[in-house]
Design a protein around this nucleic acid. Structure first.
Length: 494
RNA sequence: GGGCCGGUAGCUCAGUUUGGCAGAGCAUCGGACUUUUAAUCCGAGUGUCCUGGGUUCGAAUCCCAGCCGGCUCACCA
């Protein structure tokens, strides 16, 4: 990459001066574009298909970045890339006269507007025969090489704009993600949910089990945390009678970074009054299927060599049964930590890291069950010890009405019938706080007094949902790394 | 945080095993070329070999420490 002071950079500065000395503003303020590249190509094809009396096609003006230049003396070809794709332009000394010489001061990477009729070259490519052109922005640094493109992952993530220029797939994923979020919004809005925003800076990082980022507000002289979930604030809105709310937003967890984890990630959480987790399950499978078909054009996706069919309904599988099936362990028969440790060791599972009963069940789930959950499904009915915010099943107070959605061995969503008994909620929080004092190495939920006060005012029966947008996009776009679906993934600052 | 792998020209990469002038393609610069498209042809210059130490007559190459990245394990969604 040319740096200020480098020869390549200097050469471009000289070109910039030459353009100015010819009376050309290398950074004009606008351009009157008639067509996107893709639309221009389609226009030509449609005009071509009907017999036309005139020789010339409609004139178009398109604007984009020069991604390739091929000079042949008194004629030159260049590729322009705009938001819709690429289009080729041909410039000839004959048609352009003196202004043809300006080409010498153009480089790959510059923004250019071209205007003229279109034709097909000998090799069949639809091409703008440039009658006029205008420099839209001079670039001082070179672009990645055209053939191999940009593959260095560090540069791709740190300078995502180069990735977007060089790699069409990067562009496609960014666009797909945006469309997917739009579809989710339409889907939720269509079900009479209202989109809300809740605080990201919070005094208590509650609503999940995760290590928060800490910060400080100077004027308040108060420590604050970045939210780890949107859950509790959204449920306060349910208490307030908003009935159906959702939030699509960033949450922050101060934990490891890997293929599936970025410290900031996007979730959609929704809360629906008078619904239970069965209603939410129906909604989730329909939501995912709708996004897949509307954005990616299919209800079937390829992921890691597997073909995954997202068509509802997805099977509802008992968590307890699935653990029994894949590990031989009946967790309900092991109500205390010691028994479970013994059983897990007997099954050859490393229990050195997990210290709590809930932590070990979670490990059983992720080690033994998750890898089998390739086709989409719901695991339902979790132990109460793992789920301090979920309502117990009426027939079994060891189990709560909670489900997690899985596909391609990845967890996509977590949801439950919300616990709305304020007395029980307080005691569940107190249990979490107690566990933290006993097992500080693990993450526990935190007691949020403001939230309890809200629930004490009466929270209606509610079905709640959290769905990881990044992982959903990974699944639908076939990407194995969360960094591919986050435009600017977290990297160490240099 | 642990383990493994990597970092060489603007980009993509050889060269490291066995220490001996810093290399190729693209890009860039000069020239030729009026339908090219990884254009072609002739000619030219690329550089903190990630950084800092060490060994050596001599280090991109060997040793040590560090930085950055990737994968993986742990933790997690």
């Amino acid at each position: 990459m040319p740096q200020p002071g480098d020869e390549l950079f200097q050469v471009r500065l000289e070109k910039l001066d030459r353009l100015r000395s010819k009376g050309i503003d290398p950074y004009p303020r606008n351009y009157d574009r008639s067509h996107m590249a893709k639309d221009a190509l389609e226009l030509f094809e449609s005009e071509e298909s009907i017999e036309s009396d005139s020789d010339d096609s409609t004139q178009v003006s398109v604007a984009g970045r020069i991604t390739a230049m091929r000079g042949l003396g008194k004629a030159s070809f260049l590729d322009l890339l705009d938001g819709s794709g690429k289009i080729q332009g041909m410039l000839r000394r004959n048609t352009l006269g003196e202004s043809y010489e300006i080409l010498k001061d153009l480089d790959i990477g510059d923004w250019l507007g071209i205007k003229g009729p279109m034709f097909r070259t000998r090799t069949g490519e639809i091409t703008v025969e440039v009658r006029e052109f205008e420099v839209l922005a001079k670039s001082l640094r070179g672009l990645p090489e055209k053939f191999h493109g940009l593959t260095d992952t560090e540069t791709r993530f740190r300078q995502r704009y180069l990735d977007l220029i060089a790699n069409p797939e990067a562009r496609e994923i960014a666009i797909m993600r945006s469309r997917a979020v739009s579809v989710i919004r339409r889907f939720m809005d269509g079900r009479d949910f209202i989109e809300v925003e809740t605080p990201m800076l919070v005094p208590v990082a509650a609503g999940g089990m995760a290590h928060p980022f800490e910060t400080h507000h100077n004027a308040l002289n108060q420590d604050l945390f970045l939210r780890i979930a949107t859950e509790l604030y959204l449920k306060k809105l349910i208490v307030g009678g908003l009935e159906r709310v959702y939030e699509i937003g960033r949450i922050f967890r101060n934990e490891g970074i890997d293929l599936n984890h970025n410290p900031e990630f996007t979730t959609m959480e929704s809360y629906e009054s008078f619904a239970d987790y069965n209603d939410v399950m129906n909604m989730v499978e329909e939501l995912v299927h709708t996004v897949a078909t509307e954005v990616f054009g299919a209800s079937v996706v390829e992921y890691g060599g597997e073909t995954i069919d997202l068509t509802p309904p997805w099977p509802r599988l008992s968590l307890v049964e699935q653990i029994k099936l894949h590990s031989g362990i009946d967790i309900l028969e092991c109500p205390d930590t010691e028994t479970l440790v013994t059983e897990m060791q007997a099954a050859g599972i490393d229990v050195s890291a997990a210290t709590s009963w809930a932590g070990m069940v979670d490990k059983l789930l992720s080690d033994r069950v998750e890898p089998h959950l390739i086709q989409p499904c719901f695991l339902v009915d979790y132990p109460v010890a793992m789920s301090p915010l979920a309502k117990k099943k009426p027939e079994d107070d060891r189990i709560v009405e909670r489900f997690e959605a899985f596909a391609a061995g990845m967890e996509l969503a977590n949801a439950f019938t919300e616990l709305n008994d304020p007395v029980e909620q307080r005691s569940r929080f107190e249990d979490q706080e107690l566990q933290r004092t006993q097992l500080p190495g693990e993450e526990w939920d935190r007691l949020d007094e403001d939230f309890l006060t809200a629930v004490e005012h009466g929270m209606p029966p509610t079905g709640g949902l959290g769905i990881g947008i990044d992982r959903l996009i990974m699944l639908l776009s076939g990407q194995q790394s969360i960094r591919e679906v986050v435009l600017f993934p977290q990297l160490r600052a240099t």
